[in-house]
């Protein structure tokens, strides 16, 4: 096929279309934004009106107070990551978007589980928590609250383990993620 640098004309049949296919996997977008009023509304509104579903979303300060970091996950089987990031980039307050590769990323989530347990069951739940490196942060006669951090999968696994005991409430923060190695996310 005619390479851009050569004089050779190219055959149209060999052109391949770029862009906009669905990836079929979960995506974690790390979005660096200006720390200004209304930025989160602009991002949430963009997702809503373009019909993209957000799975989780976290916002927090960064090492530089001018900027905030939004970590957002969505399903790449439902939406084209290419189109999502291009639309996000059109927002004036968005500086940088990174579609994090799972293998090169450390992602963590915090979850709190309130489980209905009494007597012997309490010991059993505490034992499971230990295996998951969780912490019991509150105990009453008829309940415990367990704090777990880890990947989304680990938290889901813990949920499966404790649900049969009587899960009163579960709260999750959604993932935050940082790229591995020396470079900035």
């Amino acid at each position: 096929m005619g390479e851009p640098g050569t004089k050779e004309l190219l055959s149209l049949d060999e052109l391949e279309a770029a862009g906009n296919a669905r990836s079929g996997r979960k995506h974690i977008l790390s979005i660096l934004v200006e720390n200004k009023a209304g930025v989160l509304t602009r991002i949430a509104g963009l997702f809503a009106r373009r019909g993209y579903n957000i799975d989780t979303l976290t916002v927090g300060p960064t090492e530089d107070e001018q900027y905030s970091r939004i970590t957002l996950t969505f399903d790449g089987a439902m939406h084209s990551v290419d189109q999502v990031t291009k639309q996000l980039h059109k927002l004036i307050n968005v500086l940088k978007i990174r579609d994090l590769e799972p293998a090169d990323t450390v992602a963590r989530e915090l979850a709190l589980f309130k489980v209905a347990v009494e007597g012997a069951q309490r010991a059993e739940v505490m034992q499971i928590s230990e295996i998951f490196r969780g912490k019991v942060v509150d105990v009453t006669r008829r309940s415990v609250i367990v704090e777990i951090t880890g990947t989304t999968d680990k938290i889901a696994a813990f949920e499966r383990m404790v649900r049969p005991f009587g899960l009163i409430e579960m709260m999750r923060t959604g993932e935050i993620a940082i790229s591995r190695g020396r470079g900035e996310t």
Binding site: L15, A17, A18, N20, A21, K86, H89, K90
Partner: peptide
């Protein structure tokens, strides 16, 4: 096949995948 020239990257391959 499609060549798509636009100042707005979000328009490219939005409705029709661009080859160039």
């Amino acid at each position: 096949k499609f060549i798509h020239i636009d100042i707005d990257p979000a328009e490219i391959s939005k409705n029709i995948p661009a080859h160039i």
